[in-house]
Every structure is written in structure tokens, then in C-alpha cells.
Simulated assay, not measured.
Amino acid sequence: MLLRSMFAQNYRSLRSIRMDLSGINLFIGENGVGKSNLYRALQLIQAATRGRLAHEIAAEGGMFSALWSGPRRDGERSFRIRLETELLDEERAITFRYRVEAGLRPVTMMKRAGPAIAVRGPNGRMQDYPEQALPSETAIALLGDAGHYPEIGTFRRAIDGWRFFHGFRTDRLSQLRAPCLAVTAPLLDEDGNNIAAVFATLVHTREDTVDLDRAIVAALGGARLVVPLPEETAQFGLSFPEFPNRVFQPRELSDGQVRFLGLAAALMSYRLPPLIALNEPEASLHPDMLPPLADMIADAAQSSQIWIVTHSEPLAAAVRERCGARARHVVRQDGATWIEGMRLTGVIDEDE
């Protein structure tokens, strides 16, 4: 299911912005222009489908922290955050649209009034849902799990599958450096705590690591990934050409090496998520690692939609060379986050 467009209004630096999206979406801009708020808006839509919208807004400091931070027009006293997304099921030619609003009044989701929810039943008529929602719950989270509304469940599962890799810890206590339970791991957790199981699944279940091995060789000086057959835990290490008889454990690797392996697990796992969002993936990476990273992004884009926020012009250029995706330059316009060259309709003029 392809994320075709998004809309955000009155959220932090996003006064009102609508964007058409493609297979690869690359955002670049200076600090403080609001790149991360675009990324975060998608996360809030996912949180709504999981029933955690209230929790996420509270974690940001509450509504007053999450609301539009720029100047208000005359007569404006309060705002409601509005987030909207559109997904296209290309196989069935079905378009799903979902809008969530949050403000200082009760949140309305679908047909909701306070705890009461109305939903369209099999007969095509609106009917009362038998359960009542708690103030902190969203209607789509309840209905998506109910088992009686396939369209809502399909939409919720699609968004629930998105993965946001905001940044991997690479310090000595990082989960990327630790063994994990030896269970099949088709995709990487957002904090990377199952990375060893992801590699073990590729090596011992899929038995095909040609692309992964090529990326590691290119980025890490000819290194080879070593993944023992898991017993109680899954583990991995690296073997380097200059030390052929020794396997270096994750705790011995540099921050950049560990971070690249985390990105490799995110982009080359056994089963990729429908949307992979990377926030400043170039952090801690040596410049020589950027072309192999761009190669992995291009490979992942064959089956997943990609969202990248970066400061790196070389990475943006490498992704464009491999995928043809132009960087969208994020700027401030009248105090609000905006995309350079984008019309009010969300269409970006390719000549800009």
C-alpha cells in the first residue's frame, strides 16, 4: 500500500502543508526549519491507528507544545491539530483516506461523539458500535481490532507496519551491540534490539546474504559478517581482511560501523515494512559509507516506500543518482515549514 499524500495543519512549525509523495521522499534542509516535524506528523498518524495518539501528544509536552508555534492571525484563540493521509492499494485500486484531529475539545474520529462510536455496517448504514471508547483511545484502534470491519482493519495494519528509525544508539550499552533471543526476526525493531536475530534469519533461514555481504564489504573495508548458528541467543561479528583469524564482536566495533550495520538490518531484512523512515542516517558514518548506504536505499525502494531526512548533500546526490529522486529542500516561509518550489496543492514543480 503506497502512501500517496499527507497533510498537516497547526502542528508545531507546520502551519498548513499538503504534499504528494512518491516511492522515495528525500528531505534536506538546515537545522530548525522543521524537517523532523514532517516526519513526526507521520508518526502521530501511526500512533492514532495504534490508539496511542493521546500518549504521544502528552509525551511531547501536551497540546500547547504540539500546537502551531508561529504567529497567529487576528482573532485566532485556539487551534486543532489536523493530520491526514491517503494510501493507495494499487492491486485493488482502492484509496484509503484517514484524518485525525486533536485539540482542546474531545477528539472526533470517524463518527465519534465522546465515548460513542458510529460505524458503517455490512448493510451500508451507520450503526452504533457496541463498545465505548476511553478518552485516551482512538476509534480506529478499536475498530481495526474488532474483526468485523475489513477495510478499517486493512488500513490500520498497513500504517501499523511503518517503521521509523529515528536514530540508533551506538554507545557501549547500545542494543545493537548485544545478543538477543534466538527467534525468527523478519524485520528490525525500531530500537534495533533484535539486530542479531535479523542477521541470523537472513543467514540461516533465507540462506541468501549476497546483497548484504556486498554492502558490508563496500562500506567496512572488505569486512565479512559472521553469524554463528543460534542456540539460546543470536549473535554476530565482523571479520576483517587484515585479521582473517579473528572475529570482532559488536562491543569492539566503532560507532560508525555499528550504525551502518543497524541501517543494513533496517533496509535489508527478510521482510521489509511498507514504509521505512530514516532520520539523518548519515550521522557517525564515514563519507566512504554513504555510497553503499545509497545502494541499500535503492534496493529497499524496490519493495518499500522510503522517507529520508538528511543534512548530507553527498547522500542526497548519491540517492538521486541511483533512484532519480530529487531532494525536497525544507525551508521556513513566513515562519512556517515549507517545501521549496511546492504549490499550495502539494505538487512540486520539477523545474524548480
Rank of each mutant, 00 (worst) to 15 (best):
M1D: 04
L3H: 01
R4V: 11
R4T: 13
S5V: 02
I17N: 07
G23Y: 01
G23P: 01
L26W: 09
E30L: 03
Y39R: 04
L42Y: 06
A47N: 04
L67H: 05
G70C: 09
D74K: 13
S78L: 04
E86A: 13
I94D: 00
V100M: 01
V100T: 14
A102T: 14
L104C: 05
R105L: 15
V107Q: 12
A113Y: 12
G114Y: 03
P122N: 11
R125P: 12
M126I: 11
M126L: 14
Q132I: 01
L134E: 08
A139L: 03
I140G: 01
A141F: 05
L143H: 05
G147C: 09
G153I: 05
R163G: 08
H166E: 12
H166N: 14
H166M: 03
T170E: 12
S174E: 06
C180Q: 09
V183M: 03
V183E: 11
T184G: 00
P186T: 15
L188C: 06
D189F: 10
A197P: 13
F199T: 09
A200V: 07
V203T: 15
T205N: 04
T205F: 00
T209G: 00
T209M: 09
L212A: 10
L212S: 10
A215N: 15
A219Q: 06
L229E: 15
E231K: 14
L238M: 13
L238E: 10
E242M: 11
F243M: 12
P244A: 01
N245Y: 11
R246W: 08
R246N: 09
Q249D: 15
D255C: 04
Q257H: 07
V258Q: 06
G262C: 11
A266P: 07
M268A: 10
L275S: 00
E282S: 08
L285D: 06
L285F: 08
P287H: 02
D288K: 07
P291R: 08
A298V: 08
A298M: 02
Q302M: 04
Q305A: 02
H311R: 05
S312Y: 12
L315P: 09
L315I: 10
V319W: 06
R320P: 11
R320S: 14
R332K: 13
T345Y: 01
G346W: 14
E352C: 07
